[in-house]
Design a protein around this nucleic acid. Structure first.
Length: 624
DNA sequence: CTAGGGTTAG
């Protein structure tokens, strides 16, 4: 414990000051948070073999903590143990906590190991330290050791150790123990339970824990709302948010961030705008602003996103920049994305893994082979980032879409990552664009090896075979699909009108105005055909992830949603639609013509890409 | 002296 450099190794000096006034002075400095004077006084006390009381020392330790004074903290530690006094458990706990907060886990652990009477706080401090450092195994191990020593965990212990649970089995066991001792009604424990179940994807259990709550606080609500938002169940997150408001709680930064994330997932631009109003009072909150920025990008409102991004002039971090760059790229504004990246390089934060992904994404979507290749080649050298599978994916996409299919395949085999289903799907997408049937079959087979539940790929494969008159192969694929119980989701489009989400599902007539909409659609198609529209049913390779062709093409869900948008939104208002499947070639042509003929901006977001239709053209440049 | 909630890609 002692060091050669320690002040305490000097011989005690003679001191004329009375013991009382020395200790009093020390106490005064501690409470005044005057660290230098307190340290001097402590030195003097030490020379006179004097000690103060434990509470005073703990004040001094707090003082060291807020100043980040590690060295002084160590001196206090030595002093407390130096006069032959045995410090009280609570003072040792304070010291352990100090080391933990300084990130010196080993020193905390040494103290912990050597202390005589470890109480629940000592154990909890260590458990919390381990779980905060992601040493989950150690945290759980300590819980077991503590129980073995007969120390009973309290709510502090449980809320700490819960965060260290990385398996459902552990979690359920722990949940059981918590119920047994009746600590589940503690708000900290409850929110930790909800959060941990959510992190492990067990939303059902999280919701049960939430619903059993009689009295809770905002954090518990935030846990459950955040849990659903992060598990891509935006509907439930939004419902809970409304419930929370009815229960009389006022949303804070955390709530709003989660609700915005839910809006992002569901493309709820109107609700997002409403939330924006509440965000204004937290306009210093970077995380919240980043979530807002992402919402505008992913809801296809680049005007709002740009406005916000420029307003956030003073405080933008790497996430803000990455979000904006990726947002521009996904919406088809690749040149702007690259321009922004250049300005980030000169006056923004250091780009990270995700930033580069956005940049490469921008290149691949605009067919900028040279730029993409350059950024890819130089990312390690310029930013110290090794290309990951996703970066390779972008470049495979870039080469493939540009028609360099051979080079794309070569890269797949050369990269130092195992290709996964996503990699092959990218190649398949390129085959679709360039109508390379043989390679498409190869890629599709690779996908199905890795992801046997991918309905779109079975259908594509069957269609390719059917198209080449290979009826037996086609039947075999369909049969496999049947035996594996793989079903294709029906095409579905959503549109938000007057704070209400309207869903259009292929083959489903449950929308109250469906007949009227279909009549309007038929008339619109007639009108478009007079200016040259020809419904295109020959998109075999297009059927990759698009809606089925055999069903009436004219009632594809996005067409119904577009017509409903024309019918129910004011003339100048952009029509925003979200789809669950890729848009098909026919609907793409249809949307371009409608945008032109009706003088409307139409934004359709499919699972991969955004299409901004304006005056007869699409922001994707017909390249998707 | 010890405890809970939020942001970019996939």
């Amino acid at each position: 414990m002692r060091r050669a450099t320690s002040i305490f190794n000097h011989a005690p000096a003679i001191c004329s000051v009375s013991a009382h006034s020395l200790v009093d002075e020390f106490t005064k400095f501690c409470y005044q948070r005057d660290l230098p004077r307190a340290m001097k006084a402590m030195e003097a006390m030490h020379r006179n073999r004097l000690s103060a009381d434990a509470i005073t020392y703990s004040e001094l330790i707090k003082c060291c903590l807020v100043r980040g004074a590690v060295q002084q903290g160590r001196l206090v530690h030595e002093h407390v143990f130096s006069n032959g006094y045995e410090p009280k458990t609570f003072l040792i706990n304070t010291l352990i906590n100090m080391y933990v907060k300084f990130g010196l886990l080993d020193e905390a652990r040494n103290l912990f190991d050597e202390m005589p009477d470890r109480n629940v706080v000592s154990w909890t401090t260590m458990i919390s330290a381990y779980s905060n450092s992601n040493l989950n195994h150690k945290a759980l191990e300590f819980l077991i050791l503590m129980l073995r020593e007969g120390v009973r965990p309290n709510m502090f212990t449980y809320s700490s150790v819960l965060r260290a649970c990385d398996g459902l089995l552990n979690l359920r066991q722990l949940h059981g123990s918590i119920m047994k001792v009746g600590l589940e009604s503690d708000v900290f424990v409850r929110s930790a339970l909800i959060d941990t179940y959510s992190k492990l994807g067990a939303q059902h259990d999280a919701l049960n824990v939430f619903n059993e709550m009689i009295t809770g606080d905002l954090v518990v609500w935030n846990s459950i709302i955040g849990g659903f938002a992060q598990n891509s169940d935006g509907d439930e997150a939004v419902n809970l948010y409304k419930r929370m408001k009815r229960a009389g709680f006022v949303a804070d930064q955390s709530t709003l961030t989660s609700v915005l994330r839910a809006c992002t997932g569901l493309a709820l631009l109107e609700l997002g705008r409403q939330v924006h109003v509440h965000v204004l009072k937290y306009d210093q909150d970077l995380i919240l602003n980043n979530a807002l920025l992402d919402m505008y990008c992913k809801c296809g409102s680049l005007e709002d996103a740009n406005l916000l991004f420029n307003r956030m002039m003073t405080e933008k971090d790497v996430i803000s920049w990455s979000t904006m760059i990726a947002g521009l790229a996904q919406n088809g504004f690749s040149a702007d994305a690259l321009k922004l990246f250049e300005s980030m390089k000169s006056k923004g934060p250091k780009p990270n893994y995700i930033t580069i992904l956005g940049v490469l994404f921008a290149c691949s979507h605009a067919g900028l082979v040279n730029d993409g290749w350059y950024y890819f080649q130089s990312m390690k050298q310029h930013f110290g980032i090794d290309p990951g599978r996703e970066h390779y994916g972008c470049i495979i996409d870039l080469l493939g879409r540009a028609g360099k299919l051979d080079e794309a395949v070569k890269l797949i085999h050369e990269m130092n990552h195992e290709p996964d289903a996503v990699t092959w799907r990218i190649l398949l997408g390129a085959c679709r664009v360039h109508k390379n049937v043989d390679l498409a079959i190869y890629a599709a087979k690779e996908i199905l090896k890795l992801d046997p539940a991918d309905a779109g790929t079975y259908i594509l494969l069957a269609n390719i075979y059917a198209n080449s008159q290979k009826w037996e192969d086609a039947a075999e694929v369909r049969r496999k699909m049947g035996t594996r119980g793989v079903k294709k989701d029906p095409g579905c489009s959503w549109i938000e009108v007057s704070k209400q989400v309207h869903a259009f599902i292929l083959g489903d007539n449950s929308h109250p105005r469906i007949e009227e909409i279909k009549r309007e659609l038929s008339q619109l198609i007639q009108k478009l055909m007079r200016v040259g529209y020809v419904p295109d049913t020959n998109f075999v390779l297009q059927d990759l992830e698009g809606e089925q062709m055999e069903d009436s093409l004219q009632y594809h869900s996005e067409k119904l949603a577009i017509v409903f948008g024309l019918m129910s939104l004011p003339n100048q208002k952009t029509i925003h639609i979200r789809k669950n499947l890729r848009i098909c070639g026919d609907c793409h042509i249809f949307a371009k013509l409608v945008a032109q003929l009706e003088n409307r901006v139409i934004v359709i977001r499919d699972p991969i890409r955004y299409h901004h239709f304006r005056g007869g053209v699409c922001s994707c440049g017909d390249y998707w």
